[in-house]
Design a protein around this nucleic acid. Structure first.
Length: 419
DNA sequence: TCTGGGGTCCTAGGACCC
DNA sequence: TCTGGGGTCCTAGGACCC
């Protein structure tokens, strides 16, 4: 059996964990730049505020209903995620961390266990130890455990937040209950197509002809169909090193000058380089893009990206910043109001596998230099050592008006309890 | 005035090889 | 009038996930 553990309204629950006064009250979390609503407590969902809604459009409803709004605090969420996953590790050696707030557990050799009470124990312990409420779905396949999890989440009282699909009868009942657009792996386009074929729920989907599914939803869709039918088709994914790494941001205001964008792009390239070094990869290509504000119909629009093949694989901040800067110069046009930019590094090779090039070689002296920089930054705080082309005066900042303290990762923000 | 960020996989078609 | 057969690699675009 597979168990899927999913944290309820994760970011909102993280904020609440250190603010018990917010229990039962509406909580929402915003994206970077305080732009969109990316997490909602049940109370906020009940107000009809959709996922990803622009915050300014809902400002009135939020204020009127006393919604407690927070800027995204990823340091906090990342740390809380760790705590949850550590506890889950105690329950099985086979844990697939699927996202920041979700994990699959493989329950092999549990035939003599009472799975229901096992699930309840996990549910209680995580909730008690971290303050994050979770739901548990258990079933013979991964996609069915997703379905079971949805039922547990929807009916917490009836299920004690744990639901098991362990019979054909329960499987069919669950699939008939699940709307097609809510099936894991069926997105907007597919559900539209399927509804046109009178497929309205997950069960209808499992009755479709294999060949039709293969043709219209590709092998991914076919695998999903079999998995939902109860044949284990989707297995654990082993964590692979990333194939692409990106750092992109929307700015608080528009930029018009090359120098301003250059500072941002340099900083994004340095961030990509750090992430590359963390997974011991070098990249062989880099993409830089710049973008005007697509929502402003009154301003001329410009979107451009450029991919540069590098003369040698590298993960040096200095070299990547230089290549990114050169790329930017080639696509920058004066006269536009830029709102967004990003750097994406691609085509990786392992760090220790240095491909010699006849004419140009990477500067090998950068390797110990970057190690020293990483060490200093790890000890004294991120960005203590920076390139001169980066924002030394710290002019640049993100809109983050409602940021909560970093309760668990910064000693100065630690919680104080008055007794 | 204000609209996030970071990923994966699959497929078709073009360019190329012998 | 008639124009082979069998491959690989790369890329863009489309779909999906959280």
């Amino acid at each position: 059996m597979f168990a899927l553990v999913d944290c309820n309204n994760f970011y909102a629950s993280c904020e609440r964990a250190f603010r018990p006064d917010l229990r039962g009250k509406p909580v929402a979390v915003l994206s970077n730049n305080d732009g969109c609503i990316i997490a909602r407590s049940n109370e906020v969902k009940a107000l009809g505020i959709p996922m990803g809604a622009p915050a300014f459009e809902y400002e009135e409803i939020l204020t009127k209903n006393n919604v407690h709004v927070f800027s995204a605090n990823f340091a906090l969420y990342g740390d809380m995620s760790h705590r949850v996953m550590n506890i889950l590790h105690e329950y099985t050696p086979d844990l697939e961390i699927y996202s920041i707030d979700e994990a699959f557990l493989k329950l092999e050799g549990f035939e003599n266990y009472n799975i229901q009470s096992y699930g309840e124990e996990i549910q209680l312990k995580v909730t008690k130890w971290t303050g994050i409420p979770i739901s548990v779905g258990i079933a013979p396949t991964k996609s069915l455990s997703k379905v079971a999890n949805r039922i547990a989440k929807k009916y917490p009282d009836k299920t004690k937040s744990v639901y098991i699909i362990d019979s054909e009868e329960k499987r069919i009942k669950a699939l008939k209950w699940l709307k097609i657009e809510d099936v894991w792996g069926i997105g907007r386009q597919h559900s539209k197509r399927l509804k046109a074929m009178n497929v309205y729920n997950a069960y209808d989907f499992t009755l479709l002809d294999d060949a039709w599914v293969r043709k219209n939803l590709a092998v991914v869709g076919l695998r999903l169909k079999h998995d939902l039918q109860g044949m284990p088709t989707l297995d654990f994914e082993i964590v692979q090193p990333k194939k692409n790494i990106a750092t992109t941001r929307t700015f608080e205001r528009n930029y018009t000058e090359l120098e301003q964008l250059n500072e941002r792009v340099t900083t994004f390239a340095v961030s990509c380089a750090e992430k590359l070094r963390m997974q011991k990869s070098c990249c062989n290509a880099i993409m830089v893009f710049i973008h005007t504000n697509g929502n402003r119909k009154d301003l001329p629009q410009y979107y451009k990206n450029i991919v540069m093949k590098l003369p040698f694989p590298t993960n040096s901040s200095i070299e990547l910043a230089k290549f990114a800067s050169q790329s930017l110069e080639r696509i920058f046009l004066k006269g536009y109001h830029y709102k967004k930019a990003g750097v994406i590094v691609m085509d990786f090779s392992p760090e220790d596998e240095i491909q010699f090039n006849l004419f140009e070689n990477r500067n090998l002296r950068h390797i110990p230099l970057m190690q020293a920089v990483d060490k200093i930054n790890a000890t004294y705080g991120q960005q203590k050592v920076r390139l001169a082309s980066q924002d030394l005066k710290r002019v640049w900042k993100m809109k983050q008006e409602k940021l909560s303290p970093r309760y668990t990762t910064n000693i100065n923000d630690i919680i104080i309890i008055h007794t």
